[in-house]
Amino acid sequence: MIVTRALTKRYGSVLAVDAVDLNVRDGDRYGFLGPNGSGKTTTVRMLLGLVFATSGEIELLGERMPRNAAEVLPRIGAMVEGPAAYPHLSGRRNLSLLDASGPGGSRRTRRARIEEALEQVGLAGIDRRPVKAYSLGMRQRLGLAAALLRKPRLLVLDEPTNGLDPKGIHEIRDLLIELNKAGTTVFLSSHLLSEVEHLCTRVGIVDRGRLVLEEELDTVRGATGLVEVRSPDAADVASMLNGQLVSRDGENLLIRHGDPAALNTTLVAAGLRIASITEQRRTLEQVVLEVTGAGSDRVDAP
């Protein structure tokens, strides 16, 4: 779906994107993560042919970009850095003008496609008021509708839930998962870890222009080899597992052990009461913090 090879972008002396090799597979829900200023947006813009790469190759849907943009882009829906629309026109008219601007959107089906896209994003009942009267969340939904107009095979979305309330975020997430099940590959660029954690099956993490990690989300969030135990008899558990105890905080214990089920059996057999026991997994946040440095919006004194 998306393959880049040594994709590089240099602005003067600044290396914004440095030899990035992305590989987004058909059917992925891919989360593209990174601190502010790490080159996420520049990469997305290069994928879509808005920014020209200094060097390296891009393949979208198996075709070279930006050379074959006219064939590739009609099959892609995208939202880059927030939605945009003509503020003095209504949402429907904006969608209609955008659809009429380029290839791949038949005029005959336009009205039906617009209604369907508006329905999908929850704007079906929108009236004729101009976009300037829309709330941030409504604009976001309209931008998403624009991306969905031609039933794209690939969705490239930059912060799609920005400005939405929790319920809206949930709706959009469900919509994206549903579209993905129907065969749409989703490429989501975000710095909201929870969004990626809830939605994506694979993640790519960039830091200072380099792709530092690209992995299945399940693998990323692998077990740490520790087990979290909460027990009213914490003191006894601690003394029993003296060598394996990592830390203790009141009733909560952290124990080095590979198998929570076996540990549970051991403790219960010893007559200790266990309130909860879970295998500790790494959170996406820990992984991201491990592999990335400070964002470029932080400026420390020398």
Binding site: A69, P74, L98
Partner: peptide, 14 residues
Amino acid sequence: VGGTLRYLLIRPVG
């Protein structure tokens, strides 16, 4: 400045 230029170009309009 309105941001619609990028959406036109990725529509795509040459």
